[in-house]
Each structure stands twice: as C-alpha cells, then as structure tokens.
Amino acid sequence: MWETVAQAVINGLLIGGIYALVSIGVTLIFGVVKIVNFAQGEFVMIGMYISFFLANQFGIDPLVSLIVSMPVLFVVGVLIQHFLIRRVLGPNDMPQIFLTFALSLLLLNLALMLFSANYRTVHTSYSDEAFHIGGLYIPVAKLIAFVVAMLLSGALWVFLHTTDLGKAMRAAAQNRDVATLMGINPNRMFCVALGIALALAGAAGSLLMPFYSAYPFVGQVFVLMAFVAVVMGTLGNVIGALIASLLMGVAESLGIQYVGADSGLIVVFAMLLLTLAFKPTGLGGKAR
C-alpha cells in the first residue's frame, strides 16, 4: 500500500520538475514584462526538436545539447522582445495577448509544415534504465531531468537575488518608472527576462527528449499545466510556481492512481479551484 503511494509521489515529483521549468518561464515573463506568453509551450517544442536533430544528425546526447538549445532560445527570446513584444507594450493588454497567441499558432503550424506530425524519439543508453530501491523504481532519464531542472531553478533564484542584473530586473518588475529613474533601462531588463524564460523552455525540451516524443503539438500538453501552476503559485512568483508545479505533478499522479487514468487532470483542476476559493492570490502570497 505505502509502496504504491510512494511510487505515485515519486512519479509526480519527477514530472513536476519539468512542469516547473515551463511555468517558471511563464511566471518570470509575467512578473517582469507583465505579459502572458501563450507561446511558451512552442518553445519547449523547439527545444525538443533542436535536441532531436542534434541527436539524430550528430549523435549528440540530448542532455549535452542543453548547452545548444538554451543559448539558441535565449537569443530568440531577446529578439522576440526587442522586435515584437516591445512594440505592443502599453496600457492595452489585447495586442499582447494577440501577439503571443499568434506566435504560438505560427510556430505550431511552421513545425507541422517542416517536421510533419510524426512522433520523433531519441533513444539513449539510459532511456529505459531505472534505479530500483526496494519495491520502488526511479527512471534515470527523469531523475536527471528533475535534478537539472532544480539546479536551473536554484541558479535563477540566486541570479535574481544576488546579482546586480537580477536585482535590477526585479526592480524593473516592481516599478518600471522608478527603476528608470534609478538608471535602469527597462527594455534591456525585459530582453534578459524573455531570454531567460525561453532558455528555460529550451532546457525543458532537451531534458524531455530522452523519455518523451517530440511532435508539433507537444508544447500544448505542458503549457496547460504551466498556466495552472503559475496561477496557483501566484502570478510572477518564481518559488511559488516551482512549488505549485511539484504539487501538481504529485496531485496528477495520485489522481491517476486513485481516481482513474483519465481523471488525473480533474484532481489538478480541483486543487486550482480550491486554491482560488480560499487563497485567491495563490499559494506564493505575493509576486516576488
């Protein structure tokens, strides 16, 4: 009995790590630039395809291709902020929503056109391996993904709280006008925030590749969970998003185990509803 529960919790935490990478990106963009990036899932998809092609063409391990996918998507993020998002930042939210939503549709259909709807998998030596402890098992690929996801989240926290650039970014997030008066260029901060957020999505893609298939719609699966996590963990709160993602992973896993294999998401959304009913600002309290 306890073994089944423990296994379900382990499974949930491991997949929660991936949800965390995606949702931290969304929450960072919202916290700093104050826009909702609907295309975040598509950048996970791009990260996966980068890793897939590097593995397929050059035999590079998906975990190693992290050092390619992250910088590439960082640059993409900076360019998107500089050339697209900057132009729609203003008092009106609608153009921003349309922009990121259009970006999502564009990237999705571009991927369909270029890569077709086929599923692409990468097979690594550790894809099917698992550590067995007693009656429990921990898949190697997912454990690696989880550890790297936690390390990246930790690094982001350290960056935001100890470095000048990180502090400046948080300042620009808290009050754009005052930050400008203090000599901070908000647009530069926004570029960095977009870059970091997309780099995290790219990392999620590369980390997923050893155990998940890449296909054009793959981002949609993860972005839904990310949005729930972002709301549950308080919009703009990085630590909140992280904790909410892990909680959701566990809730989904327990839901599948004890409610039904097609009702994992029901438990997740029930959790979201309860959170909104009793703590409308989210579990994280306030944006940080």
Partner: peptide, 11 residues
C-alpha cells in the same frame, strides 16, 4: 480508460 497524450505513463 486514459486520456491520450499524457505526459507520464508511470501512474
């Protein structure tokens, strides 16, 4: 029954 397109088959 399960919903197609899940992220994790472990549960």
């Amino acid at each position: 029954p399960y919903s197609a397109g899940f992220t994790d088959a472990s549960p």
